[in-house]
Design a protein around this nucleic acid. Structure first.
Lengths: 347, 347
DNA sequence: TTGAAAGCGCTAACAA
DNA sequence: TTGTTAGCGCTTTCAA
């Protein structure tokens, strides 16, 4: 007896069980369950009935090993607590839903070593593609991506060199654009508030683009404040209080994300500060949350859902290929001035 | 030639490649890479070096098929846009990180048929356990869970019968408790604002518990308002405006979640309504976001991270078993009165 | 401490 | 339309 047909009642069901129950060969059962090849309607019905009665769930592990095909797409993001990433995932899911592909999510907490580990684990399941946030990876991760032999799409960022395909926005450009809008509106004493950024490359690039564009106008950031962990809304309030008590004559505050921006806005309103007359404010991401605030914060849309959709499309189009075709999609975020960034006369 | 040793340069590397590169049998290579059994330090070094040089990534599909062991834990939640679920996932990840187990996430969008499909897909990978939100599943899903032969933990809710283990809070009790607190504080004309709930069983149970406790006090909900989709903060504002213009003499608004509650709070403050003097407010979830609002919304902590941690612990303790031991953990959410639910004299 | 053989549950390829 | 055979790349088991 080469196969286990013995007394273990709790062993998961196999194709063979369905085969025996329906009196049809394993191969034909397999065909029916995958809708492959020609099978007579009669056998088909019998097999499906048997499978259903038994409660058979196919073993994809065996199937994948035999067919050398896995319908999983590895999706690797830094965090889920950020609201930005769930929206990207929603975009991905929306598109993959139309295909046989299935997304599998991994989270890195912005740690390169963790990213490496997550990527390694996921690649060891031989997925049909990888969608990964950012263009910065440690050496090992980069090597794995290069040699994976499957389509790779790096998302969210376009400032750098992708391994294969890329869908994102230029955060440097976003920073520049916001700086220009702020300066053009007549603000001059500008403060920056953001995350401690060593590992959030996109926030860093926005900051760099911002300071660069300011420099072109002969301006510098007057004061800055950074945070780390905690509720972003609360941190936004606290940092705003801190920076304004240290440097009361600031006339604009640029926040590295909408949540801390919203906190800052609420703080300013609490304090009776005239926004945007006395102080202008801007954030980043274009969170829908902002629509519910008393005043609409200026921001830029990070094109989250569209990034997800495009990335998924690329993977779907290249599933089974050895690479994703190297397509590069750079989306243009729209500046939304809202109520907190308004032209004013210089003081 | 039984194995493919031919010219395909791009075929993924196998154990055999490492075996040939290191001059050691496949079996020994396997032992080294898994840290199993006794291997001499010399062979060990040689094998690891060869594997690293080649860039070998083990094929878990083959490994899983051979060993009949899969270190994946299927985690199924209704949504990621809710903030609640990412926190549960964080709790799960935190605990599984200490083990060889790896969470894999699936999302159902609150649709039973989708849940069935996601569950089926995940089970077909033969995970070591399932963590799934809620106690309500369609018949097929329930049958799959029962017959899976692996530990199952149903989370977030304790009002009902779990298939195996369970970690959650009683939403009925949470609703009752909130109603009692509100009535006790002297509010009488109470309105309810929530999601259209046919498929959000936990929101429904809170509502039921709430009305039940009110009934005991001889009270009924005076008016109600439901929403569906859109930015919760905005919807909170809109619904609050709607309900108050329809029924201006309400003295309390109970929201089915903190986000719409926050929207309502901001609306009331905008309108110069005295909170909690003229109208009291309460939400549900205990989102940290609330700390950043101008006034702290009354709420109840849904114990999200702890639920995730406990569920993961159960799975970890029972990995490899045929079931999760049927443990039932009912957490007690804490009522936080904040600034929007204060004792007052009856009018 | 190492290796050889068998087979995990399925599917590709071919035969009938 | 259905069945047979030979693996997929690994690990288990047993032998050396």
């Amino acid at each position: 007896m080469t196969r286990n047909q013995s007394a273990n009642a709790n062993r998961p069901l196999t194709l063979r069980d369905v085969s025996e129950a329906s009196g049809v060969s394993e191969m034909t059962v397999s065909r029916v369950l995958r809708n492959r090849g020609d099978v007579s309607e009669a056998t088909r019905t019998r097999v499906l009935e048997a499978a259903k009665t038994l409660g058979y769930v196919p073993n994809k592990i065996a199937g994948a090993l035999a067919s050398q095909r896995v319908n999983l797409v590895a999706v690797i993001v830094p965090s889920l607590g950020n609201l930005v990433f769930p929206e990207v995932l929603a975009g991905i899911t929306e598109v993959l839903d139309e295909t046989p592909l299935q997304p599998v999510f991994g989270v890195t907490n912005y740690e390169p070593d963790r990213e490496e580990k997550v990527l390694y684990e996921m690649l060891s399941w031989r997925p049909s593609g990888v969608i990964i946030a950012g263009l910065e990876h440690n050496e090992a991760a980069r090597a794995m991506l290069k040699n994976a032999g499957i389509p790779i799409v790096e998302i969210m960022d376009s400032d750098g060199d992708p391994v294969d395909a890329m869908v994102g926005i230029s955060h440097r450009r976003a920073g520049r654009q916001m700086a220009q809008a702020i300066v053009e509106a007549g603000y001059r004493r500008i403060g920056f508030l953001g995350t401690k950024m060593p590992l959030d490359h996109r926030a860093r690039k926005r900051f760099e683009g911002f300071t660069e564009a300011m420099a072109k106008e002969g301006l510098e950031i007057v004061d800055q404040e950074f945070y780390d962990g905690g509720s972003a809304l609360v941190k936004g309030r606290e940092m705003t209080q801190a920076i304004l008590s240290r440097t009361p004559d600031l006339d604009f505050l640029y926040y590295s994300n909408d949540m801390i921006g919203a906190g800052g806005l609420l703080y300013c309103l609490d304090q009776g500060i005239d926004v945007p007359g006395q102080i202008g404010l801007a954030g980043f991401n274009g969170l829908r949350l902002l629509d519910g605030l008393p005043r609409k914060l200026a921001t830029m849309d990070a094109c989250r859902a569209e990034i997800g959709r495009e990335a998924a499309r690329i993977i779907a189009e290249h599933a089974g290929d050895e690479a994703g075709g190297g397509e590069r999609i750079v989306l243009k975020p729209k500046l939304q001035l809202g109520d907190t960034l308004k032209r004013r006369t210089a003081r």
